[in-house]
Design a protein around this nucleic acid. Structure first.
Length: 577
RNA sequence: GCCUCGGUAGCUCAAUUGGAUAGAGCAUCGGACUUCGAAUCCGACGGUUACAGGUUCGAUUCCUGUCCGGGGCACCA
């Protein structure tokens, strides 16, 4: 009755629900969670069910008596060793070692490692990174890029059809200033060597001039109008700015191993803005106010949102609504996920609300994260304390290279650099991915580039050790096929590792559902700790035949889970580090 | 002023979304390399979960109030 490769948690939850329903045929159990949780503390078993206490509250009866009734009627599934009642009415569930071993064997035989295909025939659009044209990426941009990319990978792993869309800020009033500034004082050499930096300098200079000189402001405005009316020359310049910016951004994306399916910036939706506003008016959602057209959401506890400025121009709310409408019509996604910093929360709530009132069926999710700041201050261009993204990546690789040179002096220079690249970039990504995005993030070099403790290099080190052991085994016992031996769990470190391994799919599912890669990072770190402890305390190459092969298979599975799991965070796993 | 997010060990963060004795890393201290890779492992130290009430078998988690900090609140995104 039990498929070995089905999630243990799902199996046990179904079993508990069934048993409780049988115990209480008259009661209405809808709305009560009758499932199990992984035990936090191993002295309380492998899984626990707290439904007896919840039911007792609902039915005004005694929780321990209910739990006792459960135990009396329960028909234990094959993989359950025993169940116990503890405390106020917990039901603790202990799994058989053979049950765990079966699960591990099934995982070894499945190249998805037991991941469910939750996303079958469902399309999800993930809108992330989305930097502005003509502004260099600094370390504030890395969060949207890295978190968004991990969510992208998690959804793909669960079988969703993912469309990663880079919604570039490629339209707006700043282009009048940039075009004018470009014509007047662009430094062509700088534009070749550091294009985006130069474009930003042009913008900032031009912007400052416009504040002091009304004539300059008027000229910039004229350039903007020409661009908006399709003037060929300005259009060509605008396209050039985008191209220059993208060529630089793509270099960074390549380093970060981030790829998009679409690069549809705001400009893509330009010709749909007027009709979007018309739709709002037809639906009675928009009204005139002080010369502008607004959506008044105050009855819904939200602030007023402007959908057409008093000068006739449109702004981001309108663009975003048009974007949703366009995406919904073209791709029929079941969900659109936006990854941005938390300053945009109000905006997203407003425009999600408007979309709902327009009866757009798509589920819209805003994944937000705290802005990164320095211990002493926030980043600002004015303060001059901005850290460029590429500088951060360079520094990470340089520091990793020092460590590699020291610990792997025999490697070729080329290999050392390659390892340092994977380790350095991994460390940066992991720092961002391993914490709950909601909390404030204070940037320190020390933390961003940590190479020990809870860090990507720790996980990569665990992986490299396994790879090394695997190769040693193959060299030493070329004629033995470990798969011909069963997995047997005897040592406590082995069992702990086994339990963690079986929870891989649940971790992926939770991380995706909560849109939190940190869940995945936590899981992998936990797993690596269990492995390191196993590695240090249980001999395997030196064990006798049988246990040796069983343990090699455990190593093999751990390696697969680490490799696949880290890939979901966009982190590489070199075979040697 | 209103809205919103946060406050957990000296520091940086967790806590299966209401579960049992609040866990990790860093730092500090003490152990383990002629033995499968010491970027490791084993152990110690470290807590009135900002504060005060409330809800209940049970609260870091939910509610109310207060304090501290981040962010937002009409033509930037």
């Amino acid at each position: 009755m039990i498929k070995p490769n089905q999630l243990i948690e799902t199996q046990l939850s179904a079993w508990c629900a069934k048993t409780f329903t049988a115990c209480l045929p008259a009661a209405d159990l809808n709305g009560v969670n009758l499932g199990v949780n992984a035990s936090r503390n191993e002295q309380f078993g492998d899984y626990q069910c707290d439904a007896a206490m919840k039911l007792a509250k609902e039915l005004k009866s005694n929780p321990r008596a209910l739990a006792q009734q459960f135990v009396d009627t329960a028909d234990l599934p094959d993989l359950v060793e025993k169940i116990e009642i503890a405390g106020p009415g917990f039901i603790n569930i202990y799994l058989k070692n053979e049950g765990l071993a079966n699960q591990l064997t099934a995982m070894l035989g499945d190249n998805t490692l037991g991941l469910p295909n939750l996303g079958k025939n469902q399309t999800v659009i993930i809108d992330y990174s989305s930097p502005n044209v003509a502004k260099p990426m600094h370390i504030g941009h890395i969060r949207s890029t890295v978190i968004g990319n991990s969510i992208d990978r998690l959804y793909r792993a669960l079988g969703y059809n993912v469309i990663a869309d880079n919604h570039l800020g490629d339209w707006g009033t700043q282009f009048g200033l940039i075009i004018l500034g470009y014509r007047e004082f662009a430094d062509m050499d700088a534009l070749k060597t550091a294009p985006v930096e130069e474009l930003e300098r042009i913008y900032v200079t031009s912007y400052n001039m416009s504040k002091e000189d009304p004539a300059w402001r008027d000229r910039a405005k004229a350039e903007l109008v020409k661009l908006q009316q399709g003037d060929a020359e300005n259009r060509a310049l605008w396209e050039k700015f985008i191209e220059l910016t993208l060529s630089e951004f793509n270099r960074i994306y390549k380093r970060l191993d981030v790829a998009f399916d679409l690069y549809r910036g705001e400009s893509f939706y330009n010709d749909q803005l007027a009709e979007t506003v018309e739709k709002l008016q037809q639906a009675g959602l928009a009204e005139e106010s002080n010369g502008a057209l607004i959506c008044n959401l105050e009855d819904d506890g939200l602030a007023v949102a402007i959908v057409r400025k008093s000068d006739g121009g449109y702004n981001y709310t309108t663009t975003d609504i048009a974007t949703v409408a366009s995406r919904t019509a073209e791709f029929q996604p079941s969900e659109i996920i936006y990854v941005t910093d938390d300053r945009q929360q109000l905006h997203f709530r407003q425009f999600f609300h408007i979309c709902q009132k327009l009866n757009i069926p798509t589920k819209l999710t805003h994944v937000w994260f705290g802005l990164m700041r320095l211990p002493e201050a926030t980043f600002s261009t004015r303060e001059g304390n901005v850290i460029k993204l590429e500088a951060l990546l360079d520094e990470a690789e340089a520091r990793a290279l020092e460590v590699v040179k020291k610990s792997s002096p025999d490697m070729s220079d080329e290999q050392q650099r390659e390892v340092a690249r994977a380790v350095g970039i991994g460390a940066i990504k992991y720092t961002d991915l391993s914490q709950n995005p909601a909390s404030l993030v204070t940037f320190t070099w020390e933390k961003a580039l940590a190479m020990d403790g809870n860090s990507a290099p720790y996980l990569q080190y665990a992986y490299a050790r396994i790879a090394s052991v695997r190769d040693k085994y193959a060299a030493k016992f070329p004629d033995i096929n470990p798969d011909a031996f069963p997995i047997i769990l005897t040592e406590e470190q082995e069992r702990r590792l086994a339990i963690k391994l079986t929870r891989f799919a649940a971790a992926v599912e939770t991380a995706a559902r909560l849109h939190r890669p940190s869940v995945m990072a936590d899981y992998l770190y936990d797993l690596s700790q269990a492995y390191s402890s196993f590695y240090q305390n249980v001999p395997f190459l030196k064990a006798e035949e049988g246990p040796r092969e069983s343990r090699i298979r455990l190593c093999e599975l751990t390696a697969s889970v680490l490799k696949n799991g880290l890939a979901l965070l966009g982190i590489e796993t070199p075979e040697r580090i």
